[in-house]
Amino acid sequence: MRFSVLSKGDSTSNALMQRIITYLQDFELIYDEAEPDIVISVGGDGTLLYAFHRYSSRLDKVAFVGVHTGHLGFYADWLPDEIEKLVIAIAKTPYQVVEYPLLEVIIRYRHGGKETKYLGLNESTVKSTVGTLVMDVEIRGEHFERFRGDGLCVSTPSGSTAYNKALGGAIIHPAIHAIQLAEMASINNRVFRTVGSPLILPAHHTLMLKPVYVHDFNVTIDHLNVMHRDVKSIQFRVADEKVRFARFRPFPFWKRVHDSFISGEG
C-alpha cells in the first residue's frame, strides 16, 4: 500500500507526521506523495480540506483519514495518543470505505472563455465585491427568487455543520445526497422578498445564480477564496465525484455532532 501524510505545519503535527511515516515504513508500506492509496492528515479539519483539494484529481483512487492535534474534528477523528493503534490498523486490517457527497461548482463568463469548475468538500459562498449581493436564483431552470443580502452559501451534507450551521442551516446526514442553500443577512421588506429559509435540493436538482447588476464576485470553495470577474452564471449541484474516507472503527455522524456541539468533549 502507498501512503502520504500531510501536516498542519506546527511542531506537534510535524512530529506526529514523522512518527507516522517511520512506523508505516517499518511495516513496509511505501511513502508516495504523488499516487497514494491512503492520505493521512495531521492537524484538524482544515488540514484535511487542504489534503482533499491537493488530491482532488485522484478521488476515486485515494481514501482519507484524519488525526487531530487540536479540538475534535468532523473529518479528523484520531487522537495523537492513538497513533500506534492507527498505524497497526492501516498496515494490518482492511478498512471500510465511507463515501460522502461533494459539491460541484461551475462558473461561466459573459464573454465566453473557458468555464471554471470546482469541487467542494464543505461549502461554497458567493459575495459581491462591493455592496449588496443581488442574484436571481433558479432551481431546475425555473426562476425562484431575486436575492438581496450579504451573500449566499451552498453546502454539502458533511459541510452542513460548518459555516452553514452558523447561518442557521440544517444539519444533514452525509448519507443524503443533497446540497443546501443558506442566506446571509437577506433583505426582506415590503419591496424585496426572499424565502428566508434554507433550501435543501436533491441530487437531481441544479441550482443556478445569475447576476442582476454587477458581475464581479468573491467566490469561496472551502478554504479557497477567488475573485471572478464578468460572471454570467454560477451553477451548483451534487457532484458525480465523491470523497472516500478510510474507516477503521465506527464513528457515527450523529455522535460527531453530539461530541462537537453538545457534550463539550474533545
Results as ranks from 00 to 15, higher is better:
178 A>Q: 08
86 L>I: 09
86 L>C: 11
253 F>I: 01
58 R>L: 12
252 P>Q: 08
197 S>T: 14
235 Q>G: 00
144 F>Q: 02
60 D>W: 02
51 A>G: 00
141 G>E: 07
7 S>T: 15
211 P>F: 08
210 K>G: 04
228 H>V: 02
47 T>G: 02
5 V>E: 10
235 Q>N: 03
202 P>M: 07
8 K>D: 11
40 I>Q: 06
39 V>L: 09
163 Y>C: 02
219 V>C: 12
50 Y>R: 14
130 V>S: 14
164 N>F: 05
25 Q>Y: 08
88 I>L: 02
73 G>N: 11
198 P>W: 05
28 E>S: 14
264 G>M: 03
26 D>K: 12
86 L>W: 07
128 S>A: 15
1 M>P: 12
9 G>S: 06
124 S>A: 13
196 G>W: 09
71 H>C: 02
29 L>F: 12
3 F>I: 04
88 I>C: 03
129 T>F: 01
72 L>H: 02
52 F>Q: 08
233 S>H: 05
234 I>D: 04
154 V>R: 02
54 R>K: 15
183 E>F: 14
235 Q>W: 03
266 G>T: 14
261 F>E: 06
15 A>N: 13
69 T>G: 09
165 K>Q: 10
159 G>F: 09
93 T>Y: 12
144 F>W: 14
207 L>M: 07
214 V>T: 13
167 L>P: 07
259 D>E: 14
160 S>N: 10
33 E>S: 15
171 I>K: 07
10 D>Y: 03
162 A>D: 06
153 C>F: 00
66 G>I: 11
72 L>V: 09
152 L>W: 06
64 F>E: 04
179 I>N: 07
220 T>Q: 09
60 D>S: 13
168 G>D: 09
92 K>T: 08
266 G>L: 12
132 T>G: 07
221 I>Y: 00
36 P>N: 10
43 G>P: 01
94 P>S: 13
148 R>F: 14
33 E>H: 11
166 A>F: 01
156 T>N: 04
69 T>M: 02
227 M>F: 09
22 T>H: 12
16 L>D: 04
18 Q>T: 06
160 S>T: 05
245 F>M: 12
69 T>N: 06
232 K>F: 10
57 S>T: 15
169 G>N: 08
30 I>L: 09
247 R>F: 00
